[in-house]
């Protein structure tokens, strides 16, 4: 409750201070957001590909996202952006299969962020293992907008964790990996890996987890929100 109030305040303060048109809209709409069930809360599921795991040293090379409206993932909102990071992808290419030559065709980080936050207007963020991705996004937003963007986030990893804790189920480290969890919920295995498929995967996982948590009635999302 308190967290949410503080989040709203922060959004409003920053929105007043930074009168960049797009961002102010994002912040005011975000502050005013009513969070209820999946059926009536608009979400944006996001995934990033990075050159490494350290937000201070590594760069974002791709951002993928999709929208969830009324409990349905809308393919029409699917988006995949390559970011020209100006840094070699190095060994990380083995994970995301993006080469320097691919990334070279990407857009500038600023442009990518602008598009992303435009798409996120009036939506709750959804990540799998949010702290990593949000860390990168906040770091990027400092150099872009001049401040660390506030985030109101659902994290499928955290939700699954609390679900298991509620039911006293054992959790092994590997269990909470996105693909492991998807298999657990009888979701299809995607062969290709990129930011967009992972964002879609996360959205699907959320729908599945929500159904498992409250099979009869709709799950209230608010208790599961995390603020950054």
């Amino acid at each position: 409750m308190l967290d949410h109030w503080r989040y709203q305040k922060r959004c409003q303060t920053i929105a007043q201070r930074f009168r960049q048109a797009g961002l102010a809209d994002y912040l005011t709409e975000s502050a005013a957001l009513e969070v209820d069930t999946i059926a009536n809360t608009p979400l944006i599921a996001v995934d990033l590909e990075m050159t490494g795991l350290d937000a201070r040293e590594n760069q974002i090379v791709a951002i993928g996202w999709t929208h969830v409206d009324g409990g349905r993932i809308r393919f029409a909102a699917n988006q995949h952006l390559l970011i020209n990071a100006g840094q070699t992808v190095g060994y990380s290419a083995a994970i995301h299969e993006l080469l320097d030559s691919d990334v070279a065709h990407g857009v500038a980080l600023e442009e990518g962020l602008a598009t992303l936050f435009e798409a996120a207007r009036g939506r709750v963020w959804l990540f799998h293992h949010a702290s990593l991705d949000v860390g990168f996004l906040q770091r990027a937003s400092i150099s872009w907008a001049g401040f660390a963007m506030p985030f109101m986030v659902l994290d499928t990893l955290q939700m699954e964790l609390s679900l298991r804790q509620q039911r006293d189920l054992p959790v092994q480290h590997d269990d909470l990996r996105l693909n492991k969890l998807r298999a657990h919920y009888n979701l299809p295995a995607y062969t290709a890996h990129n930011a967009l498929t992972d964002a879609s995967s996360t959205a699907e996982l959320l729908l599945a987890i929500a159904e498992k948590m409250e099979p009869a009635t709709a799950l209230k999302l608010k208790p599961y929100l995390t603020y950054f």
């Binding site: 699917n78 988006q79 995949h80 390559l82 993006l98 691919d102 857009v107 299809p188 290709a192 498929t197």
Partner: peptide, 15 residues
């Protein structure tokens, strides 16, 4: 080849 796209290519693969 992934590029900047606005589509659902993982879906077309299945379709």
């Amino acid at each position: 080849m992934p590029t900047n796209y606005h589509d659902a290519s993982h879906a077309t693969e299945f379709l």
